[in-house]
């Protein structure tokens, strides 16, 4: 990227402009956390561990990107974990039954899309509040995954599937590459397409957006569909790594995703959020977990640290905005 910007100066200023002050703040937060762990944990900044952090953050980052779009549109998607579970068990079951990998993949992404579409339609057409809708589907989707599998994990996912999501290219894990591509696509969607501006408009002021001719229902449904599809994709990364699909997978994923989006500058009021910020937010959470684990800190304290980092990030956000 650096040689690209060096050869095309106009591009450079554009790239710079799209990197907002708020994103710079998140980046500073990340650098500080990395610096602290670098001082405390030998080998924390090693190339291998940094790649590890990215890999460990990839699932949350994938979910959080969809969450960011939904939050920007003024909604929330609490059902991402169960959506991932449904998609995981369906995909795994098809693979085990001997269906070709592309068919299983399409089916998994398709069911994620359907889950998102149901959320979106209930929000957009039934006029229900997003929190309640996705709280309802959180249980419903989980129940479907459990009923479908009888509560048992689907074992024996073939290596051909696992190598797609668990392999690596030139030392970089495929999961990281996949999520990077998703992030790029989400960035383009938000910054460069009409639907991105519609998301910001609907979340920023739905009434005004309607008067200005923005297709409200379509915009909202798009956000939930993307969130559902990305939940499915995230589940592929997980079952690729584990080799099995549990119907209870993805528990509490929604909270990590919301945390990453919020740390990255998304406002739960809607109308505001950043793809770059969300990625940085997911890496911040991943680094915390990685560093604390390397320090042999008990899981209880890891939870405490995660909670505090979210609160501190939000307070800094509030304070800096108050002054500006």
């Amino acid at each position: 990227m650096s040689d690209l910007s060096a050869t095309v100066p106009a591009r450079q200023s554009k790239l710079f402009r799209s990197f907002s002050v708020r994103d710079a703040g998140t980046l500073i937060g990340l650098v500080l956390i990395l610096a602290v762990f670098a001082a405390l944990v030998p080998g924390f900044l090693s190339e291998r561990n940094l790649v590890n952090i990215l890999q460990q953050s990839s699932i949350n980052a994938c979910i959080a990107l969809g969450m960011t779009l939904v939050i920007i549109s003024g909604g929330i998607d609490l059902s991402v974990g169960p959506t991932a579970a449904i998609s995981a068990v369906l995909t795994a079951a098809l693979l085990v039954a001997g269906y070709p990998v592309p068919v299983a993949l399409m089916a998994g992404l398709g069911i994620g899309m359907v889950c998102g579409m149901v959320n979106g339609a209930l929000v957009a057409y039934a006029g229900l509040q997003p929190f309640i809708v996705t709280l309802g589907t959180l249980s419903t989707y989980r129940a479907i995954a459990l009923i479908y599998t009888g509560g048992n994990p689907v074992l024996g996912i073939p290596a051909s599937f696992r190598s797609i999501f668990n392999g690596n290219i030139a030392g970089i894990p495929n999961s990281v590459i996949i999520v990077a591509l998703v992030a790029l696509a989400a960035w383009v969607l938000l910054k460069k397409t009409p639907i991105g501006e519609y998301l910001l408009a609907v979340g920023g002021n739905e009434e005004a957006a309607y008067v200005a001719g923005v297709p409200i229902a379509l915009t909202k449904i798009t956000a939930y569909v993307i969130s559902g599809v990305l939940a499915a994709l995230a589940s592929f990364i997980l079952i690729g790594r584990l080799g099995a699909a549990e119907p209870i997978l993805g528990n509490l994923w929604e909270l990590d995703a919301i945390a990453a989006a919020a740390i990255g500058g998304a406002s739960l009021m809607g109308g505001k959020g950043s793809v770059v910020g969300t990625i940085l937010g997911a890496i911040i959470l991943g680094s915390m977990r990685n560093g604390l684990t390397l320090m042999n800190v008990q899981a209880f304290y890891q939870l405490l640290a995660t909670g505090l980092i979210i609160l501190v990030a939000m307070m800094i956000d509030r304070l800096t905005r108050g002054r500006g």
Binding site: G204, N205, A208, V211, G213, K272
Partner: peptide, 16 residues
């Protein structure tokens, strides 16, 4: 309430 998208730039409010 019905006219502006408060956080968006004037230019994008215009283009919406």
């Amino acid at each position: 309430r019905e006219g502006i998208i408060p956080l968006r730039p004037v230019s994008m409010n215009m283009a919406l």
